[in-house]
Protein backbone atom coordinates (compact mmCIF):
# COMPACT_ATOMS: atom_id res chain seq x y z
CA UNK A 1 0.00 0.00 0.00
CA UNK A 2 2.68 2.49 -1.04
CA UNK A 3 -0.13 4.75 -2.29
CA UNK A 4 -0.25 6.08 1.28
CA UNK A 5 3.38 7.17 1.08
CA UNK A 6 2.64 8.72 -2.30
CA UNK A 7 -0.32 10.66 -0.85
CA UNK A 8 1.78 11.77 2.12
CA UNK A 9 4.57 13.01 -0.14
CA UNK A 10 2.08 14.92 -2.30
CA UNK A 11 0.62 16.56 0.81
CA UNK A 12 4.04 17.57 2.10
CA UNK A 13 4.94 19.26 -1.19
CA UNK A 14 1.54 20.95 -1.35
CA UNK A 15 1.83 22.31 2.20
CA UNK A 16 5.27 23.71 1.42
CA UNK A 17 3.95 25.51 -1.66
CA UNK A 18 0.98 26.95 0.24
CA UNK A 19 3.31 28.18 2.97
CA UNK A 20 5.53 29.82 0.31
CA UNK A 21 2.44 31.64 -0.97
CA UNK A 22 1.69 32.97 2.51
CA UNK A 23 -1.24 30.66 3.13
CA UNK A 24 -4.45 29.57 1.46
CA UNK A 25 -5.96 26.34 0.31
CA UNK A 26 -5.50 24.33 -2.85
CA UNK A 27 -8.32 24.54 -5.30
CA UNK A 28 -6.90 22.16 -7.86
CA UNK A 29 -3.96 19.80 -8.12
CA UNK A 30 -2.73 18.20 -11.33
CA UNK A 31 -0.77 14.95 -11.16
CA UNK A 32 0.88 12.74 -13.78
CA UNK A 33 0.86 9.07 -12.87
CA UNK A 34 2.13 6.95 -15.73
CA UNK A 35 0.45 3.64 -16.50
CA UNK A 36 3.72 1.84 -15.74
CA UNK A 37 4.49 3.82 -12.58
CA UNK A 38 3.30 1.07 -10.26
CA UNK A 39 0.65 3.20 -8.57
CA UNK A 40 -2.95 2.03 -8.38
CA UNK A 41 -5.00 5.14 -9.03
CA UNK A 42 -8.07 3.55 -7.44
CA UNK A 43 -6.09 2.88 -4.23
CA UNK A 44 -4.78 6.43 -4.24
CA UNK A 45 -8.28 7.83 -4.64
CA UNK A 46 -9.55 5.46 -1.95
CA UNK A 47 -7.15 6.79 0.69
CA UNK A 48 -7.05 10.37 -0.60
CA UNK A 49 -9.99 11.83 1.33
CA UNK A 50 -8.85 10.20 4.59
CA UNK A 51 -5.29 11.50 4.20
CA UNK A 52 -6.25 14.98 3.07
CA UNK A 53 -9.05 15.74 5.55
CA UNK A 54 -8.43 19.07 7.36
CA UNK A 55 -5.38 19.81 5.24
CA UNK A 56 -4.62 22.27 2.44
CA UNK A 57 -5.72 19.55 0.01
CA UNK A 58 -8.96 18.79 1.86
CA UNK A 59 -11.18 20.45 -0.74
CA UNK A 60 -8.92 20.27 -3.78
CA UNK A 61 -10.12 18.98 -7.07
CA UNK A 62 -7.72 16.36 -8.44
CA UNK A 63 -6.80 16.09 -12.10
CA UNK A 64 -4.76 13.00 -12.99
CA UNK A 65 -3.01 12.45 -16.32
CA UNK A 66 -2.06 8.87 -17.05
CA UNK A 67 0.64 8.82 -19.73
CA UNK A 68 0.71 5.59 -21.75
CA UNK A 69 3.81 3.40 -21.74
CA UNK A 70 6.20 3.92 -24.66
CA UNK A 71 9.64 2.51 -25.28
CA UNK A 72 12.44 2.53 -27.85
CA UNK A 73 13.96 -0.82 -28.72
CA UNK A 74 17.70 -0.81 -27.94
CA UNK A 75 18.36 -3.37 -30.67
CA UNK A 76 16.44 -2.09 -33.71
CA UNK A 77 15.29 1.39 -32.64
CA UNK A 78 11.54 0.79 -33.08
CA UNK A 79 9.40 3.01 -30.87
CA UNK A 80 6.41 1.09 -29.55
CA UNK A 81 3.55 1.29 -27.06
CA UNK A 82 3.82 -0.86 -23.94
CA UNK A 83 0.97 -2.19 -21.84
CA UNK A 84 3.28 -4.14 -19.56
CA UNK A 85 6.83 -3.58 -18.46
CA UNK A 86 7.90 -6.87 -20.06
CA UNK A 87 6.40 -6.24 -23.51
CA UNK A 88 8.91 -7.05 -26.24
CA UNK A 89 9.70 -5.06 -29.37
CA UNK A 90 7.07 -5.77 -32.07
CA UNK A 91 9.79 -5.27 -34.72
CA UNK A 92 12.53 -7.66 -33.60
CA UNK A 93 11.26 -9.33 -30.41
CA UNK A 94 14.01 -7.90 -28.16
CA UNK A 95 13.34 -7.20 -24.48
CA UNK A 96 16.11 -4.59 -24.31
CA UNK A 97 14.43 -1.20 -24.40
CA UNK A 98 14.56 2.33 -23.10
CA UNK A 99 11.30 3.39 -21.48
CA UNK A 100 10.29 6.77 -22.89
CA UNK A 101 7.05 7.35 -21.01
CA UNK A 102 4.65 5.72 -18.59
CA UNK A 103 6.85 5.84 -15.46
CA UNK A 104 5.90 9.44 -14.56
CA UNK A 105 5.08 10.21 -10.94
CA UNK A 106 4.80 13.97 -10.73
CA UNK A 107 2.93 16.92 -9.35
CA UNK A 108 2.48 19.11 -12.43
CA UNK A 109 0.54 22.04 -11.11
CA UNK A 110 -1.24 23.52 -8.11
CA UNK A 111 -3.87 26.22 -8.04
CA UNK A 112 -3.87 27.96 -4.67
CA UNK A 113 -6.51 30.44 -3.55
Amino acid sequence: MHELSIATSILKSAEREVENCGGGAIKEITLSIGKLAGVEIDSLKFIWSECMRNTVLGNAQIVIFEPEGNARCLDCGTVFGMKKIYDSCPGCGSYFKEILSGKELKINKLIIE
Binding site: S9, S13, E17, L31, K106, I107, N108, L110, I111
Partner: peptide, 16 residues
Amino acid sequence: SHTHEIKLEQDILGKN
Protein backbone atom coordinates in the same frame (compact mmCIF):
# COMPACT_ATOMS: atom_id res chain seq x y z
CA SER B 1 -10.00 36.67 -3.70
CA HIS B 2 -7.08 35.64 -5.89
CA THR B 3 -5.56 32.42 -7.11
CA HIS B 4 -1.97 31.45 -7.79
CA GLU B 5 -1.18 28.83 -10.34
CA ILE B 6 2.08 27.12 -9.54
CA LYS B 7 3.73 24.96 -12.17
CA LEU B 8 5.69 22.47 -10.08
CA GLU B 9 6.70 19.56 -12.34
CA GLN B 10 8.07 17.96 -9.20
CA ASP B 11 8.70 14.24 -8.67
CA ILE B 12 6.34 12.98 -6.01
CA LEU B 13 9.06 10.80 -4.52
CA GLY B 14 11.73 13.48 -5.02
CA LYS B 15 12.48 13.78 -1.29
CA ASN B 16 13.11 10.03 -1.00
